[in-house]
């Protein structure tokens, strides 16, 4: 077999094979992130990538090029490797976008992996997102590499000499000021003219502390053990779905604030009203009863919060990771999980 491979590559058929590979670079369909929108443009009728012999194909076994489109997450990195291993020889990788280069806008995220650490990369195309022209240029560059045998930059920049003693007109004041002892107030009362809201607040007073925080927004604070009964009461009032489940971490007060944003589709006058049903739980024992059987729309949102904050929703049947990869850090959205800090050049 090895002899045969050697013959095909280097024998009299070598140049023909090289020529064939050059004009039939088939990228596998691996749209890893948002740059995929520009990739689709590059192969649609506006730019027509097919004229240089490249066209996306669904099955990895019959392709020889991966175009990594942007950020690779921990979960996706494994898939990228498996797809790369499935492809027949010769195979190439082009990485598109700033995220694939060095993280780009998501450089200090907890869930990102550099593609160059997962698979060997031939070419990088910078940009956020790169234009279709840039992508086609990358494919062209790979073809030239197949011809000549060495990879080359497609652009070269002339050297700019730094001038000494010259400062920009206004120095960017990009200094982050983060409060050391933040005080979190969820329900700050605001005076608004809103008749329906005042009536609703009167009705909800029996459940807990209800205040109007803005027009169409009501914050209702209840005890954790009354959360379920309050949700049932709200359901009886005509509220029928959950728009968001949110957890706010307040480490110096030793608590989590769990919020359910509840609204209505079926009652017309309640449609614009958003009720923030929230309750505070201890940070040491983060457990709260789940509302997923009262409002099925809260199910996936609760699972997500379970992943990101490590808050257990008692009653939600799902156990284990949902959104995060098995090797991602525990409860990354808690305040004590720190990301790498940026350095401001202006300081």
């Amino acid at each position: 077999m090895e002899e045969f491979t050697k013959f095909v590559r280097g024998g009299i058929l070598g140049p023909i094979k090289k020529w064939g590979t050059k004009w039939s670079l088939w990228p596998v369909h691996l749209v890893t992130a948002c740059c995929g929108a520009e990739l689709a443009h590059a192969f649609a009728c506006g730019y027509d990538g097919e004229r240089i012999g490249a066209l996306n194909y669904g099955i990895a076994r019959q392709t020889n090029l991966i175009i990594v489109e942007g950020a690779i997450t921990r979960k996706m990195a494994r898939v990228l490797r498996i797809t790369w291993e499935q492809m027949p020889d010769p195979k190439f990788v082009i990485v598109m976008g700033a995220c694939g280069l060095n993280g780009g806008i998501f450089w200090n995220g907890y869930n990102l992996v550099k593609p160059s650490e997962v698979v060997p990369v031939e070419f990088f195309i910078p940009g956020c997102p790169p234009t279709p022209e840039a992508l086609l240029r990358g494919i062209r560059q790979l073809q030239i590499k197949l011809d000549k045998g060495v990879a080359e930059n497609s652009v070269s920049f002339s050297e700019v000499k730094a001038e000494k003693g010259k400062k920009p007109r206004i120095l960017p004041r990009g200094v982050k000021k983060v409060s050391l002892a933040p005080c979190i107030v969820i329900a700050r009362e605001k005076e608004v003219e809103w008749e329906l809201g005042k009536n609703l607040c009167e009705k909800l007073k029996v459940l807990g502390r209800a205040v109007i925080t803005a027009r169409n927004r009501i914050a209702l604070k209840v005890d954790p053990d009354k959360l379920r009964s309050s949700a049932m009461k709200l359901r009886d009032l005509g509220f029928d779905h959950v728009k968001s489940v949110n957890v706010v971490d307040a480490p110096n007060e030793g608590k989590f604030i769990v919020e359910y944003w509840i609204s209505s589709y079926s009652v017309k006058e309640l449609m614009p009203v958003l009720i923030n049903l929230h309750s505070e739980i201890s940070r040491r024992e983060p457990k709260i009863s789940s509302l997923s059987d009262i409002f099925p729309s809260a199910d996936y949102l609760e699972r997500e919060m379970q992943d990101l904050f490590g808050v257990e929703f008692v009653g939600n049947p799902w156990k284990g990771r949902f959104l995060l990869a098995p090797d991602a850090p525990e409860a990354p959205l808690r305040k004590d999980f720190k990301l790498q800090e940026e350095v401001y050049v202006g300081d």
Binding site: C99, N111, L112, L323
Partner: peptide, 25 residues
Amino acid sequence: PDPGYVHRCVEKIAENRLYIQNIPL
């Protein structure tokens, strides 16, 4: 469903950037 293949931690990163820097994010 098994989502999260494109989870790029936008919510966490947003807590670490200035308000105006979050617009592109």
